[in-house]
Amino acid sequence: MKELLQLNNITKIFSGHGLLRSKHSGHRAVNDVSFHINKGSVFGLVGESGCGKTTLARSIMMLDPPSSGEILFEGTDLAGLSSKKLLPYRLRMQIVFQDPHSALNPKMSIYNSMKEGLVNIKYPANRIKERIQELLDLVGITPAHMNRFPHEFSGGQKQRIVIARALSMEPEVLILDEPVSSLDVSIQAQIINLLMDLKEKLDLTYLFISHDLNLVAYLSDRIGVMYKGRIIELGDTESIMDTPRHPYTLKLFSSAPGHMEIKEETEQKDSPNPPAGYSFVPPAVSEESDFSLVSISDSHMVGCYKNIGD
């Protein structure tokens, strides 16, 4: 398998609102993130709300360029490209956002929303209507409803339309930012099956973002667990599911719904030990550089702090 996308030390800082921004004053929404995604694979990114998943996704798409770091797409650093050179890469990556409503123009019919993109990529005009009908059918929207407006669809229906529109660009990489969290289970299952079918058929590569560990585990080949802007555990799905190492990953496991009555305090499983010479909690006086991902097997890394004195 070939690496299609390689992220090197991506950092995104939201500087306050001023002229006098400095590298240190801002809010580090994404902090020194590195991982790669193989062509044709699914990389799952999990983490709590506000940990920086969407920010990272937007950085990869260069919608919000990273403050530093490299985004290598087939070896080309997107962060260094002019917006003109970037365009073809942008088309090869499409993103489906968490929030379907802001992705659809409320004043445009579904047909027109979808047509826009197709016209943009110079899709044969006489086949556009047919193609839109085909795509809508694919995601489970009655094609006859294509002249309706977004407000006439329920939340779930809208997200399906957004997915159809992203697919219309025939991308190679699909970044899916919580694409199914607003869908009901049966449609969720349909969309996931559909995404898997499409992946096989078109040799797509997915970056699948979700806070639902079960779902990510079901879908992904590799998983990255994100916490406060950092990747704190990274590895093959089996390895992470069988032997999670970081306490936060364990917390994600124990919070997954559907297994227990909610008790006042969910008891913590015994935390496993960090690798020798490291600890999970930052030392009292910590430097940025003290944190790193430490390999615990060929295909599994965990983030921790180097003990002082070592």
Binding site: E178, D212, L252, P257, E264
Partner: peptide, 20 residues
């Protein structure tokens, strides 16, 4: 109406506890 749809599991749990 779907109050935890946009939340990750840890926060979801927190909100569910809150509602209880």
């Amino acid at each position: 109406d779907e109050p935890t749809t946009a939340l990750d599991v840890t926060l979801q749990l927190q909100i569910l506890k809150l509602i209880l």
